[in-house]
């Protein structure tokens, strides 16, 4: 347990988990501050609440998932 825990976790087929406070810039250059201890950043591009994940990756075809 002495190894530090990663602050960024790429979830296979799903979002990127981001631990801590960050400013995330979306595709349009708009900055969004994180609001929770861990945030999930959309990687499939289909979320309705971008830049955050809303679970939509689960309903798109597997080959289109990150």
């Amino acid at each position: 347990m002495s190894r530090p825990t990663p602050d960024v976790v790429l979830c296979p087929g799903g979002p990127m988990l981001l631990r801590g406070e960050h400013l995330v810039m979306d595709d349009d250059g708009v900055e969004h501050p994180t609001t929770r201890p861990i945030s999930a950043v959309c990687r499939c591009g289909k979320s309705a609440t971008k830049p955050w994940c809303d679970g939509t990756h689960k309903v798109i075809p597997e080959r289109l998932r990150p």
Binding site: V9, G14, P15, L17, R36, S39, A40, T49, C53, G55
Partner: peptide, 11 residues
């Protein structure tokens, strides 16, 4: 919960 639980399910 849409957003929170998209994080929580991974956690």
């Amino acid at each position: 919960h849409v957003e929170a639980d998209a994080v929580h399910e991974q956690l």
